[in-house]
Nucleic acid binder design. Structure first.
Lengths: 219, 219
DNA sequence: ATTGACAGTGAACAAAGTTTCATAGAACAT
DNA sequence: ATGTTCTATGAAACTTTGTTCACTGTCAAT
């Protein structure tokens, strides 16, 4: 696949965003206005380039009529996600593209300092309007089946400070496990959602990797 | 909600199917040709009626530019997409609600025939190992609760030719619904997975938007 | 009988939108 | 030096497409 120039990519992204937002394609003049071109022909050339490079298909003569080439994306249901620890780089994430136009799925997780959130010290406030850096974990075991999270499911973990009752990904004995967080009289416990494992794990110094926000189950 | 006439429904259906297949809206003359009208004004009147009844929104003067009402049983979920604007350094983050644009902007991934999947004529031999382009749909309603897909869940749809027993997103009466595909003695049915709705929907000309591969359930 | 919604024909217009032509600077490789 | 690619301007030609006007007919309800 031939590389796109910066402007070409920007135009293509704008077109996809326009479709997502308005449900119809922009006209050449719409693009021209967006990018402050003085001539429609500037856009025209870019569109020709996008078509030549195989990422866009135009329907000659038809207004607001395009098709986009599918991008190389990974289906979430087939993605094997392994997560070893907060400071490892072996984190595979997958995009769920919407109409093939998503530009930012789950961002890379390498820029974080390592610990997502600690109970004692809430994470820094500095995340300005950035999508949460969620990641996925494959569930092994049956410790959460009473919460309808089964072996083989994938949970989406969102970094943050958990509240009482949240299901969290926590680091216990060097392993990441999925447990429900219980705060009782200024004490903190981790509880498995399985009648066979009724214990509460007391936690003094707890490293929370994130809060489980959703479960992905293959059909 | 005001009732649609048979023709109005058919036209709306065709428009949605056209978007689903080609990823752009049909022009008035496209619709005219499809329904063998002798005048474009016939279509024009129907479009006005559809807009008056609140199921279609036209953008005056713009070509091939419409929006559909957000009352499909399955809805696109929200997403955040990011694209680069004309200023090279400013990264715009735009929230895309995508309400009601269910029929719009579905990618055409067969590049030749345009049809995602037709029951009678499965797509051409082009079994190029191209990664499928999945997208997400939010489920409304309880028609699939026996398949453990509940109201509020999000399903990941993967374009492709469905097999017998697959749960598919299909276009019925202009709406995208989630049903199980049943092939029985060279006939094709759509079946709801709910004991209260035991019917099989016979399907002659079926537009399949994709196969449900996984369910995402918020915790 | 008459009204009003519904459905359509046929022609024509004007705006919207695409495409082509001529031209040219900057960056880059031959 | 020279050609190529990318990017862009400015104007014009041309096609597509939405829209309007005038008119006809059907059907059900008032």
């Amino acid at each position: 696949m031939e590389e796109l120039t910066k402007k070409q990519k920007a135009i293509l992204d704008y077109m996809k965003a326009h479709v997502s937002e308005h449900s119809y394609w922009p006209s050449i003049r719409d693009i021209q206005a967006k990018f402050r071109f003085a001539s429609t022909n500037a856009v025209f050339g870019h569109l020709q380039a996008l078509e030549r490079k195989g990422v866009l298909q135009r329907i000659p003569g038809a207004a607001r009529a395009y098709k986009v080439a599918p991008e190389a994306t990974v289906d979430l249901s087939e993605t094997v996600i392994r997560y070893e620890g907060p400071d490892e780089n072996s984190l595979e994430v997958s995009n769920i593209p919407l109409m093939g136009s998503i530009a930012a799925g789950f961002p890379d997780y390498t820029e974080s300092s390592g610990v997502l959130a600690s109970i004692q010290a809430p994470i820094s406030e500095g995340s300005r309007r950035r999508p949460p850096q969620s990641f996925a974990l494959r569930v092994r075991g049956d410790s959460m089946i009473d919460a309808n999270i089964n072996d083989g499911d994938t949970v989406i973990i969102e970094p943050g400070v958990p509240k009482h009752g949240d299901i969290v990904a926590a680091l216990i004995d060097g392993e990441t496990t999925l447990k429900r967080l219980i705060k009782q009289s200024s004490k903190v416990y981790l509880k498995a959602e399985n009648k066979n494992y009724p214990e509460l794990y007391p936690a003094n110094e707890l490293v929370i990797q994130g809060i489980a926000r959703s479960v992905v189950r293959p059909i």
